[in-house]
Design a protein around this nucleic acid. Structure first.
Lengths: 376, 376
DNA sequence: ATGAAAGCGCTAACAA
DNA sequence: TTGTTAGCGCTTTCAT
């Protein structure tokens, strides 16, 4: 309800010029009807030029005589005018805002990506609309519609289930969209990703290099999530590459850790420990899961990395502050956000983009949670 | 650039009814000019009623004969119509969106507050615009203007420096605003806060109860931030209450930890350790700072809590996964977010609010980072 | 109860 | 080069 005249309590510089008089049925007397922010009309009147001329000056369009321009500029300076984006949006169908659909804004991985996005969006003059869907595909669909109603300039889908029909639908409507950390099978849709398989393979290689031969994998289920599935694929191909057997006994896949990664993993691994079969090292799909493993291991009196090694994925900030500090695969979070947003805005602004499916490099951060396996 | 006809590539159910013909200068031939989403006009035409009647049905306003209503409903069902919020906003000056100004969206404390906000906003049909200012007061001012241009329904200022003039200005313009985790001196402005002083006093009491008599305090500078200053006040009053001396030697206040809380604190405390004066316990203004203390202590070979105790503030998720798990003051983060957003939306919707300055309760979460001081 | 029409503030097409 | 005007899609007022 911004700028609703009735709630305006003070005269401000912004408004002092802008009340106007209009006929009402009140005995034909002209009454002060409402306050509002200055509009382009006020500027035009003040400068003594046409509305469209003001518009041209503001948007640096058309040709305006420098003398006229001066007049407008002067009026603009005198009156603290700000164009109404909503009104402009109604005409131009652009509101300088980007909708971001994310699973969980409080997740330390995604929140850093968003931070990167926010940074470039703001720098380029766009505003961020954010909605969280908590892995609810229906909600995601609904939220897309809500954003459509708001008339946004573009979409970013950040992480979560593939849910490509929704992305596709947006894409098909000709709305700029990029998928970040979400692998859509069709590569028409612009994307910013990492090579999840290669990254996880790197982790297995690293563990193998330390002498590990019985390497576990812990994850939630990944039928609907290609990113995660590809990490699993990387785990498998890493095994294969190093001639290691695929051992279902040390592969723990359970959806219980889906929405409560750390706590869920903790429980699952604690239970797993009771079985008495132990890999010499754990791989997992994210740091927040690794934290749960670490804690369960500690609770079970198992030392890391002396008895069991653990390697994470993401390189979340807190990986540096666990005990021991977590060795992990680093995803360039902020860069993913920035790259994704720049790509999207280039699309929005119809700039030439030479690469619309971008893969960013990962790296391995060595800390202290991986060591050689214990000697028998 | 949503719904820009030129980029529409496919016919969809949504659009099939909605291309129309118009004269162009092209030899006087009528040309298909553009696609668009169905508008209220299309519904009106389909139902054979007036536009305003459709509007009335949609908004459940005025009186519509049930027969007419049925016709409209039927048309509505046939055509997948969605009102254009932007156009509506132009008239009503309400876009069902809330602007949130926050320092750092990736901070684990604020991100959980925002999560709470998002939850209720979405439930109540509002969208979130988010901007980060990174403690830059100028940016904050600018961002307020950007949000104004967007015509949002209300503001939330979340954390950060007091910067009350900006908040005041918004408030004075009659725009609904609430301040969350940000203490503005004037209580006209609705707010959701905790009692920072009482909370920190609680921490000191707790430490005192364990036998600590030399209690440190670590913080960045707080001239411009009342929340933090009040925690300091709580530290002081806690000391006083328990007849403890105020000892500047163990009070570490340094802005170096402002924007890099954990890393900065780590450095500062590492340096501090060299001085050789050590409190038996540390209080600090947030968990992320406590993590730095923990790590510095560990680096210095000092055991927690056997030699030195540490108590945090916030109860961030990861406090549970440090070594040792961090004892801390819990702030009801999600609740703060939800309460703040509910308050704001009540204000926006002009509902009766019986309490516009809300204080939420904190509690102390006992984990393992506090123990009795070492015996001499 | 229903419809016609006037804007909201802006841009863009076109006339002058 | 400048001004006039027709919308964008909606709500709201006022006739009917």
């Amino acid at each position: 309800m911004i700028r609703s005249g009735k709630r305006q309590k003070h005269f401000t510089l912004k408004t002092f010029l802008c009340y106007y008089y209009t006929n009402t049925s009140n005995n034909g007397v002209k009454l002060k009807k409402r306050f509002q922010n200055p509009s382009i009309k006020d500027i035009a009147r003040e400068a003594g030029v046409a509305i469209s001329t003001v518009s041209n000056v503001i948007n640096k369009k058309g040709v305006v005589a420098s003398q006229t321009e001066q007049k407008v500029l002067k009026a603009l300076e005198k009156i603290n005018y700000r164009p109404n984006i909503i009104a402009r949006g109604l005409r131009t169908r652009s509101t300088k805002s980007i909708g971001i659909i994310v699973q969980d804004i409080a997740n330390p991985f995604t929140s850093h990506i968003i931070k990167g996005m926010e940074e470039v969006a703001r720098k380029r003059g766009y505003t961020l609309l954010i909605a969280c869907t908590f892995y609810n595909t229906e909600d995601e669909k609904k939220q897309v519609d809500v954003f459509m109603d708001q008339v946004i300039d573009g979409f970013i889908f950040l992480g979560g289930y593939d849910n490509s029909p929704v992305v596709r639908q947006v894409y098909n409507q000709g709305i700029p969209v990029v998928s970040v950390d979400r692998e859509i099978e069709d590569t028409d849709v612009p994307s910013v990703l990492i090579d999840n398989q290669e990254a996880m393979e790197k982790a297995v290689d690293y563990l193998y290099g330390y002498g590990h031969r019985k390497i576990g994998f812990v994850s939630f289920r990944f039928e609907k999530q290609t990113t995660t599935r590809n990490r699993y694929m990387g785990y498998c191909s890493g095994l294969e590459k190093n001639n290691l057997d695929y051992d279902p006994e040390v592969i723990i896949i359970d959806d219980y850790m889906r929405l409560n990664e750390t706590g869920g993993t903790f429980e699952i691994i604690k239970k797993f420990l009771k079985k008495g079969v132990l890999p010499t090292a754990f791989t997992t799909i994210s740091d927040v899961n690794a934290f749960g493993i670490l804690k369960a291991l500690k609770a079970g009196g198992i030392r890391v990395p002396q008895e069991v090694s653990v390697i994470g994925f993401d390189n979340v900030f807190f990986s540096n502050f666990t005990e021991p500090p977590l060795t992990t695969i680093k995803q360039p979070k902020k860069m993913m956000g920035k790259t994704g947003m720049n790509l999207l805005l280039d699309l929005v602004e119809k700039k030439k983009v030479d690469k619309k499916n971008i893969k960013l490099a990962t790296s391995l951060v060595e800390r202290d949670s991986v060591g050689p396996p214990p000697k028998k």
